[in-house]
Amino acid sequence: MHDLLDQGVGVLDCARRLGLALNTVRRYARASEPDQLRRPPYYRACSVDLYRDHLRQRCADQLGVPVLHLFHQIKALGYTGSLNLLHKYLNQGRAENDRITPSPRRLTSWIMSRPTDLPSGRRAHPNELVVSCPEMTDLARLVGEFASILGERRGSDLDGCMRQVREAGLTELEPFLRGLDQDHDAAVAGLTVPYSNGPIEGVNTKNQADQTTNVRAVSFELLRHRILLT
């Protein structure tokens, strides 16, 4: 595909020549290396997850160990699932030691989520990835700090959090910091006082919708009464 693109062939023409969907061609065109196209499969939590370390250790100690032996071993440890579920778990490679690096979007969603909302396995994996990079360690810590300021309405601590971001050298967050600087007083007030203009904006939107749909069907006086009664 990249050979065709280098020859000046358009993306749509590439899709036709290769027999692929246009979105697939666009996704491949954005990737400079095949590894960038790898995405970690998403698996739901199951009862085998509790015995993952044991299965991994047994498979490492004894190559080709029968699945039935593993089934009886974890059954003795309290496993309540079926043999078929264990077969599927092992065939998917979920007991292997190596893990595929998640996409930036998925890692971002993990960092932006409350740790208590993530399953234990999902909580451990992002922690391993974040610890391996000092910038990501600072980012995860500062995101958690900002979330606590937002949830606990500690607007007085906003300046300190912004200062820590700049000291950490996280230039990717500079546009966000500039936005906070431009509306500094409003941001501090929004993170401090319990009041919000959300209800007012909602009423205004409803009134505008009523006016748009009923301006030709009702008189001004009737529309005025409806707004006042609402």
Rank of each mutant, 00 (worst) to 15 (best):
C14V: 15
R16W: 02
R17G: 00
R17T: 03
L18G: 04
L18T: 14
L20S: 03
A21E: 14
A21V: 03
L22S: 04
L22K: 14
L22T: 01
L22V: 12
N23M: 01
N23P: 00
T24R: 08
T24L: 09
V25Q: 02
V25N: 02
V25D: 01
R26D: 05
R27Q: 14
R27N: 11
Y28V: 02
Y28Q: 10
A29M: 08
A29P: 10
R30I: 01
R30A: 15
R30N: 12
A31G: 04
A31S: 10
A31D: 07
S32L: 13
S32P: 01
S32E: 08
S32Q: 12
S32A: 13
E33M: 10
E33C: 13
E33T: 08
P34Q: 07
P34S: 05
P34C: 03
D35M: 10
Q36T: 06
Q36L: 07
Q36C: 04
L37D: 05
R38S: 05
R38L: 15
R39E: 15
R39Y: 05
R39L: 10
R39W: 08
P40I: 03
P40E: 11
P41E: 08
Y42N: 05
Y43T: 07
Y43L: 06
Y43P: 04
R44N: 06
R44G: 12
R44F: 04
A45F: 02
A45K: 03
C46Q: 10
C46Y: 01
S47C: 08
V48G: 08
V48S: 06
D49M: 11
D49I: 10
L50M: 08
L50C: 02
Y51R: 12
Y51C: 11
Y51L: 12
R52V: 05
R52F: 04
D53C: 11
D53G: 12
D53V: 12
H54G: 02
H54F: 15
L55T: 07
L55Q: 10
R56P: 08
R56W: 05
